[in-house]
Every structure is written in C-alpha cells, then in structure tokens.
C-alpha cells in the first residue's frame, strides 16, 4: 500500500522543485547575460526578492477591470504548474503524466496564452491590445513548429507521452540521429520565441515599439504581477525541461528507480540546467532583436527545420532498412 504512494511523492516533489527553482533559473540566465555583456550581475536571488516585494504590495486595479482580468494570473500560474507536473525532469514515473500527452501539453501552453491575451485586452488600453495581438501572432506561428518537433520525437521513439519517450530514449543504444539535431535547433528557436527572449522580444525593455510580453502585463500590479512573472519564469523552466527531456535525457531516473538514482538525476538536472541557461544567455548576447515583421520568417525557419528533420528521418532511416 505504501509503495503505491511513492510515485505520488516524487510527483509532488518534482512540482515543488520546479516552482521553487524557476525564479532561480531565470536569475541564472540574467547573471550569465550580465557577465557576457561586461555588466555587474544582479544576485541569483534577484527574482525571489522581486516576487517578495510584489507580494507585499497592495493591488491597484483599473476601474473597468473584469473578473477575467483578476483570475487570469491564477489561471496562468496553475497551467504552468500543471505543465511542470507532466514534464519529466527528475523522474519519469509520474502519475500525473498519464493525464496528458505531449500534444495536450501544447494545448496547455495555448490555454495560458489565450488567457493572457484576453486579460491584456480586458482593460482596453492600446498597449495591452497591441501586445496581445503580437503574442497571438508569434504563438500561432510557433505552434506548428513545436508540433513538428514533437512529431520528430514521436517517430523516433514510438510514443506520444513525454515520460515513455524519455524512457525509450535514455535506454536507446544508438548514437545521435541527424533528425534529432534538426529538431533540437527548431526547438531552441521556438523556445526563444515563445518565452519572449531576444531575437523576438526583449524581456528587459519597455520600449513600446518592440515589446510583446511586457506590453501585455503592463497593467498588472502587486500579487497579480508577481504571479504573472512567476508563471513566465516557470514557463521558461518548463520549456527548458522539455528540451532536456527530449534531447539530453541522460541521467534521468527512469521507471522504478531508487533513491540513489533520483539523487543522481537531481545532480544531472542541475548541471544540465546550468549549461542550458548559459547557452541561452550566450545566444541572447550574440543575436540582435529582430524587427517584428521578421518574426514570421524566424518561425517559418524553425518550422522548416523541424519538417526537414522529419524528412531526413523518414528518408534516410527508411533507406537504411532497404
């Protein structure tokens, strides 16, 4: 009887870990960026301090704010926590993961996006509407690309559930398939676009001509803003965890692992997260922000690379068997 609850324990542990670590990860990226750009870095705990400050403040609401506007931050946060529950980051034996496969996961991200966009338009300021429109444009171009990335993985490892994908992958003896590299490049491009990182959006400015994500959350304050910020750092964390699960799953504790394997998986995860954060910061430091009208081009490229990966897998792989 007691054994039955052990996976649930890991499940909750993983969710709490994700929620707690997400601001730290965002802080780590900020720190790496500051180092690379020769600025003095903010402390790693900067995000936590900001969240604490925001939670202490009183909410200032616009007069015409509807209930949708007030509930949207909670919906956002809850969706991201749910995604964290489905994504295998430390263990793959996740009871919640049966609730949704990778395609439903994209649906969850879309739900969060719709709520954020609606809430941004709710007050009726021009900035909110502008940001919402841009976000929807980026979103609808990014979704097919990420679907293609997932299809790549589905084809390779014969499953649509993230957990069994990882199970299959980490026990797979083969060396890297070329299609995985295509998929990884496409995934990184989508990750940058979806999380409002530099080639598409600059998270550090409030310049009205360019901002997307910031324009949407401009009206939020205090605990609502804190939840929105926390949700967006959790979204980034989730995306990176999905990327790690799909492309660098080695070291993860697979089905029926014991405590030691889980400790190893934790260590592996922190190393991989540190590495991915540094790489993201490097990409952001090296690239310039694209004009908003170039964003479709960028995302079309991501889609194309993912489709190429599929093609290469189908055509090169099929030939091998012949």
């Amino acid at each position: 009887m007691a054994l039955k609850f052990v996976p649930f324990m890991w499940q909750f542990g993983e969710v709490i870990l994700a929620v707690a670590l997400a601001p730290l990860f965002a802080g780590w990226i900020g720190q790496c960026r500051a180092w690379m750009q020769n600025r003095s870095a903010p402390p790693l705990t900067q995000q936590y301090r900001m969240l604490r400050k925001l939670f202490k403040k009183d909410v200032a609401l616009a007069e015409n704010a509807s209930r949708l506007y007030r509930t949207a931050p909670y919906v956002l946060f809850a969706t991201m926590v749910l995604v964290a529950a489905i994504t295998p980051s430390v263990v793959t034996d996740l009871p919640f993961a049966h609730a949704a496969d990778a395609i439903a996961l994209i649906g969850l991200f879309a739900t969060a996006r719709v709520f954020q966009a609606l809430a941004a338009m709710d007050i009726g300021t021009s900035f909110g509407t502008l940001g919402a429109r841009r976000e929807m444009m980026v979103g609808f171009l990014a979704e097919p690309a990420i679907l293609m990335v997932f299809f790549n993985a589905f084809l390779l490892f014969d499953s649509t559930a993230l957990t069994s994908l990882v199970d299959n992958y980490s026990t797979h003896p083969s060396v890297i398939d070329p299609s995985v590299i295509f998929a990884a490049i496409a995934f990184v491009m989508v990750l940058l676009a979806e999380n409002a990182r530099i080639p598409i959006d600059n998270p550090a400015t409030h310049l009205e001509l360019t901002m997307i994500h910031e324009a949407m959350v401009l009206e939020y304050s205090a605990r609502h803003l804190a939840l929105v910020e926390w949700a967006s750092s959790l979204k980034l964390f989730n995306y990176v965890c999905i990327g790690i699960a799909l492309f660098l799953p080695w070291g993860i504790a697979i089905h029926g692992a014991n405590l030691i394997a889980i400790l190893i998986a934790l260590a592996a995860l922190s190393v991989k997260l540190a590495f991915c954060g540094a790489v993201l910061a490097l990409i952001e430091s090296l690239s310039a922000k694209l004009r908003i009208f170039r964003a479709p081009e960028f995302l079309a490229m991501a889609f194309l690379i993912a489709v190429l990966g599929l093609l290469v897998h189908l055509l090169l792989g099929a030939n091998t068997n012949a």
Partner: peptide, 17 residues
C-alpha cells in the same frame, strides 16, 4: 561511419537552407 555520414549529409542540407 554510417551514422557520421548521415550526420554530415544532414548538416549539408541544413547549410543549403
């Protein structure tokens, strides 16, 4: 060798795009 050959060919295709 075969895997490497495939990888290089894939990189070639990517570069063309």
């Amino acid at each position: 060798d075969l895997e490497f050959a495939k990888l290089l060919a894939a990189a070639m295709l990517l570069l063309s795009f």
